[in-house]
Design a protein around this nucleic acid. Structure first.
Lengths: 194, 194, 194, 194
DNA sequence: CATGAATGAGGCTTCATTCAT
DNA sequence: CATGAATGAAGCCTCATTCAT
């Protein structure tokens, strides 16, 4: 799936992969503003080759994003197979947030979900949907949240964590607050305010 | 406080204000990358004037940020005087998040708290600190959170809300989850998981 | 002489003088490229005042030049009254060159002689002419050189000295070579080559 | 020597040469302040190309300078092989000064000797050193001058000649004075004055 | 008259994209 | 196909000069 006309020749395919990998790194470090030439250099490829594979910087950015999401979906899928769905759900969230806190690129990726190609987006929603549903069925997560809320919260919590920087304890405490909000309400009466 | 040597002449002061206002708008719309020239044009001022008031683009960005924070601190201060500290606290958060969702610039501002001039930063921490403490004393907010966590959560929740875009109901639900995490735990035994 | 419509009011005249003095210093240090504003600041005068007195940067530069030449002519005049015309001539040259080596602005001034207002130029040629003639009459300087050659050599030697920088001994040796060229040829037969 | 990593591709090498040539001309005419864009235009090359070859205006200026010095050293080398070392020495000086009088850029080049890359500088000092030494051995030039004095005098005399402008006879007479200063003193007793 | 804020042309440099080799 | 040189629009900033205060 996600065919996108893979090039035939072996070296071409390899160059594409190298470019994607290099872009992943460079963009994560220098941000979207990083010059294409630097990406090409990191990939040990001529700038011309970069533009052959991705006719526009924009298109390269999108490809990197899609790649990140694919990994996100994959990771969600793996966690969905765990024994304890509740722990798996929170573990997945915690892990992703932690990664995003270090490499804000991950948060960016998730934030772009609505803008990415349908195919990729569906994959993400699907995988995460399974993980979430199981956690809810296991009674670990409140039932009035859906995948979109979870993604939004992951995006937000990543930013929050990123914002807190070095202090790991502070970061964990903050994340835990959001998690507490996601958990099944222990007692009755607490319902939404406002 | 935060005087920054206001220029004496009337036209100069007016132009500075116009530039700040124009920058506020343009930067909110186009992001930090917006050309200085566009800001100058929006302020109906020559580019030279912009650079006379803010010798560097960087310095203009910082000034805009500081201005936003000043407004944030002011708003927090006003809410701190409300009768019901609990409601006031959450109302303030909700309002800010809602604003930030529309104008992501507000989220940016908060996210930059650590990098802003000490004076401005102190103002923000102080105002929000009072608001938070009162809400905690009123039993509306759990006691194991501090100002920094709250700011981080505001940053994050703003991003989350921003990410959710149009759908107001969805946005409110998501925000509510975070708020629930912040509230005093209704029953015992619920402590941190993980 | 050199009237140039001196302003009437006392403070105006004082400002003009201050500007000229400031320009002298700043231009000598930073070169012709120095911003007018810096000159105004050095003169403790608003930029507007500078442009009131000198409607153009160009005109300020010319005024500074003229001023330098006036001093040059004056100095030449003083040396022309010395007892030993030969020594006086070389002493004058050496002194000027030494000054020019430190402050290349002096060399510039001389170099601009042909472009300066006639009145000023005449003054320079006249004063130096007297000094030269006396030295020649005293048998210290060869008779086949005129004022223009001397000025050209002063310009050149200043540059040479300036070029040599710190090393005072080297500088003196080099200057001495030119002076030797200027002196009356000791023996016959040696005439010009080429 | 002085390789400087010549680019491989033919067009690149050609453009670099064109840029250098254009810069040589434009800088000679308009001085160091000439806009880079004009140089690019003169070279019939996009401004981007100029900055690809010379990442900084500064670096272009240095390259032009180095090129001039290379030519200077080469010319000196050629003259050093002449039969009559004395005439060759003065002929070389006269020729250079004459060139410099027309194109003041040549004088500039020499004046920058101390600031240029060691390699280039050494080349200049070496070539001129040989020429000078031979002329001294042939008894045509006084023994108490070294290469640095000669360069300084060339710089200075060039300026002097340049300053004199059109009048060729006057120029020649002036240059001759310096040359006389450089020649072996014909009779005894002439020692340094001052 | 003095002041200094306003102006905008112009300078240097970067970078996405095209194209000859 | 790969390469990297060429291109020029666009960005940030400087500075001589004008003009309202």
């Amino acid at each position: 799936m996600v065919a996108v006309a893979e090039p035939k020749r072996a070296d071409a395919r390899r160059n594409r992969a190298r470019l994607l990998a290099a872009a992943e790194i460079v963009l994560a470090e220098r941000g979207t503003g990083a010059p294409t030439e630097q990406i090409a250099k990191a990939a040990k490829v001529g700038i011309g080759t970069l533009f052959r594979h991705f006719p526009t910087k924009e298109s390269l950015l999108k490809a990197v994003l899609a790649e990140r999401m694919r990994r996100f979906a994959e990771a969600a899928g793996e966690h969905a197979e765990a024994e304890d769905p509740g722990s798996a759900f929170f573990a997945f969230l915690a892990q992703w947030v932690e990664m995003a806190a270090v490499k804000n690129a991950y948060a960016d990726a998730l934030a772009e979900v609505p803008r990415v190609d349908r195919e990729v987006r569906e994959g993400v929603l699907h995988s995460l949907g399974i993980l979430l549903t199981r956690a809810q069925e296991a009674g670990a997560v409140r039932h009035d949240v859906g995948v979109r809320e979870v993604i939004a919260l992951m995006v937000g919590t990543s930013r929050a964590a990123e914002h807190l920087g070095e202090d790991a304890a502070l970061r964990r405490r903050t994340v835990e607050i959001v998690f507490d909000g996601l958990r099944t309400r222990p007692a009755p009466g607490a319902g939404a305010s406002r």
